[in-house]
Amino acid sequence: MKRIYLNENEKDFIIERKEKEYKFPKLILIMRSELYRGMFLSVTEDKSNKVTDYSELSNKSFQIFEYWIYSNQIINEIQITQEIINETKKGIDYFQLNQTNPNLFDLLINKFNNQNQNQN
């Protein structure tokens, strides 16, 4: 396994959404996402001022990703809709979160199905 060394000044990575910036610890992103693992461990890419724009995700979908990245769980308070599932599928592919265990998409589908069963 490759050891990860981060510069003391580069602990956080900025993810931009519309006018707001979110700081995520790089080590958490490395643990959760193949995309960021490759980005931060690449020797050829300039990583110092990297900002990613996720403005296309709704606030609820971004909250799901934010909570997932930190806790590897789904937020209980958010009602899962088909729109959120569709957005999350795109986000999972972009973040390359398919390898996480448990799988975020499967958990969202299960929660969506349980919500619909409970409404009937």
Results as ranks from 00 to 15, higher is better:
Asn49Gly: 13
Thr88Gly: 03
Tyr70Phe: 06
Lys50Pro: 00
Leu57Gly: 06
Leu107His: 04
Tyr94Arg: 15
Lys23Tyr: 05
Tyr22Ile: 10
Ile80Asp: 03
Asn76Glu: 08
Asn49Arg: 01
Phe24Lys: 13
Glu10Tyr: 03
Lys90Phe: 12
Trp68Pro: 02
Thr81Glu: 07
Phe62Trp: 13
Lys90Asp: 13
Gln119Ala: 13
Ser55His: 05
Glu87Cys: 11
Gln119Asp: 11
Leu97Asp: 03
Leu97Met: 13
Met31Arg: 15
Leu35Ala: 05
Tyr5Leu: 09
Val43His: 04
Ile92Lys: 11
Ile30Val: 12
Lys111Glu: 04
Lys20Gln: 07
Glu19His: 12
Gln99Thr: 14
Trp68Met: 06
Thr81Lys: 01
Asn76Ala: 04
Tyr94Lys: 12
Lys111Trp: 01
Phe112Cys: 07
Lys20Asn: 09
Lys2Phe: 02
Thr52Ala: 09
Pro25Phe: 08
Arg3Lys: 12
Ile14Arg: 07
Lys111Leu: 05
Ile84Cys: 08
Leu29Gly: 08
Pro25His: 14
Phe13Met: 07
Tyr94Trp: 14
Met1Gln: 03
Lys11Pro: 00
Glu34Tyr: 02
Phe65Asn: 02
Leu104Met: 14
Asn72Phe: 02
Asn59Leu: 14
Ser48Trp: 00
Asp12Ile: 08
Tyr67Phe: 14
Leu29Pro: 01
Phe13Ala: 13
Ile109Val: 05
Lys20Asp: 12
Lys11Ala: 09
Met39Phe: 06
Leu27Phe: 06
Lys90Thr: 15
Leu104Arg: 12
Leu29Gln: 05
Phe95Met: 07
Gln115Arg: 03
Pro25Ser: 13
Ile109Tyr: 00
Gly38Gln: 07
Leu6Met: 04
Met1Val: 06
Phe65Val: 11
Asn114Ile: 05
Ser48Leu: 04
Asn101Ser: 14
Asn98Thr: 07
Ile85Trp: 03
Ile92Tyr: 07
Gln82Arg: 10
Val43Pro: 00
Asp53Pro: 08
Glu87His: 03
Asp93Tyr: 11
Ile64Ser: 00
Glu83Arg: 09
Tyr22Arg: 10
Asn110Thr: 03
Tyr67Gly: 05
Tyr94Val: 13
Asp12Phe: 15
Pro25Ala: 11
Phe112Pro: 06
Ile69Gly: 03
Leu6Ile: 10
Thr52Asn: 08
Ser58Arg: 00
Arg17Val: 14
Ile84Ala: 08
Asn101Phe: 02
Glu66Asp: 01
Ile69Trp: 01
Phe65Tyr: 11
